[in-house]
Design a protein around this nucleic acid. Structure first.
Length: 452
DNA sequence: TGAAATGTTGGGGCG
DNA sequence: ACGCCCCAACATTTC
């Protein structure tokens, strides 16, 4: 048996239900845990960077200080470390995004030059992307049949948490984590576990009824823990199956959301280019706006000054918290693409820059769903009306008033339509930057032209 | 996991 | 009692 193997953490910042960790333990007498920080990720003090650092700080504690942090390019850092500790194997959870796959191939090649191996075990998904295929061996392009086949496919039970992990300690220098205030950031495996169990006990039964209400705290808020792998979806699914309400309608609805995550990872696996390119090429002809005038509109969208209350509330929450309710993601995405006629990747990039749970597969395919260019996308002509959506899903205006203080003097649903009230603009709320009815018609006209 | 436009139905007011 | 109109409520079609 080898003396030391390396466990290279990426989207799997946990110790439970971690097949690659078990493989690393099996392969050697000691395991060196490593995380490589890309300096480009830490240029600014945005919620996303701080969320990652908080998770790493928790992992460092959970490994009782064994975790080695290194800044730099993994293609150089990992082979160098492997050589230094004499590791023949570097263990990872299989990465499935285009960037991750390219990076891992490069690292694998660099390791091989030195006679070392990159060993991938498991992935961040319950069913590995690429595994679910239809009768003729091709990937699914529509969610519903995919979901059916995904359920049929089955998945492994959660892996055991190792009783004792023989970490390699004090042999290798670690870069310090950047000095950033991490107070109040919920992160790490224990916090993820706690949040998940609280939702399972208290939140799941109402999920069906309340999940679309951004004014309520009715979702599991598990997106960031899942993104960083502080909890594995396999664990989540196993817990639901074992729970008394595991077969309820609410539980089924929740599982479907997990399957959407798996579906989009699968779509990206089969179409790496779909991260930034339209899945439906026939809509690539759609004309989008650009130029200085459009830049000003996009800035207003980014900063939450569009004059549409529910849109501004969502965009301001994104900047402040790095998180937005999914309903708001759809509404604000629809506004950028259909009301401002801006190319969807502009919005997708903004979301990735600021969401603590920003995931290339879910985020970018979600954007394509709204823009109408994706696999299983909503038809292009589905245009969200920000006022109707606001009144329907934030019926008392609570969510809007929470994030748009200029509208706090308007009671109830009045906060969704300041233009209908004499005192609507008493606190200097911005006037609508475009007319929704007009822009909706403009979008439909462009769609009609592109289709012909 | 849309919304608006258009069509249909049926109750009530009224002569 | 009947026909007519209005219109809300709901359903269907269209974008």
């Amino acid at each position: 048996m080898m003396a030391t193997s390396i466990l290279w953490f990426r989207r799997d910042l946990r110790l439970s239900d971690h097949p690659a960790l078990l493989a690393a333990i099996d392969a050697a007498t000691h395991v060196l845990p490593v995380f490589v920080l890309d300096p480009r990720l830490l240029d600014t003090d945005i919620p996303r960077s701080r969320r990652l650092l908080a998770s790493l700080a928790a992992l460092q504690k959970d490994t009782r200080g064994a975790l080695v942090i290194r800044r730099g390019d993994p293609v150089e850092v990992i082979p160098r470390l492997a050589k230094q500790v004499g590791a023949e194997q570097v263990h990872v959870s299989r990465e499935t995004t285009p960037y991750g796959r390219r990076r891992d191939e490069a690292v694998e090649k660099a390791l091989a030059e030195d006679g070392r191996e990159l060993v991938a075990t498991g992935s961040p998904y319950a069913v590995g992307p690429g595994r679910v295929l239809n009768g003729s061996g091709s990937p699914y392009k529509v969610f519903t049949p995919f979901a059916r086949a995904w359920h049929q496919h089955g998945r492994p039970a959660p892996a055991d948490r190792p009783k004792r992990i023989p970490w390699l300690r004090d042999e290798v220098r670690s870069d310090p984590l950047p000095k950033v205030d991490l107070d109040g950031i919920e992160a790490g495996e224990a916090a993820a576990r706690k949040r998940w169990e609280a939702f399972l006990e208290d939140g799941l039964t109402a999920y069906d009824r309340e999940r679309d209400r951004p004014d309520l705290d009715s979702t599991s808020r598990l997106s960031a823990p899942l993104k960083y792998g502080e909890i594995h979806p396999r664990t989540v699914l196993a817990d639901i199956a074992a729970h008394s309400s595991g077969r309820s309608k609410a539980a089924t609805t929740y599982v479907t959301e997990i399957v959407w995550r798996e579906f989009y990872a699968d779509v990206l696996w089969h179409n790496p280019a779909s991260a930034w390119h339209d899945l439906r090429p026939e809509l690539a002809k759609l004309p989008y706006d650009s130029g200085p005038q459009t830049d000003r509109l996009v800035d207003a969208w980014r900063e939450g000054r569009t004059g549409y209350p529910v849109v501004d509330a969502g965009m301001r929450q994104l900047l402040a918290e790095g998180w937005m309710h999914n309903r708001l993601r759809m509404i604000t995405a629809s506004f950028l693409t259909k009301d401002l006629h801006v190319w969807w990747p502009v919005g997708a990039q903004h979301f990735l820059d600021h969401l603590v749970d920003g995931d290339i597969a879910s985020n970018n395919h979600g954007w394509q769903w709204v823009a109408g260019t994706g696999t299983d996308a909503s038809p292009y002509f589905r245009v969200f009306n920000p006022v109707t959506q606001g009144r329907k899903f934030d019926p008392d205006g609570e969510y809007v008033r929470r994030w748009v203080p200029e509208l706090r003097h308007l009671a109830g649903a009045a906060a969704h339509e300041p233009w209908k009230h004499d005192n609507g603009y008493d606190n200097d709320y911005v006037q609508p930057i475009v007319d929704h009815d007009e822009e909706r018609k403009e979008s439909l006209a462009r769609y009609e032209r592109a289709r012909r």
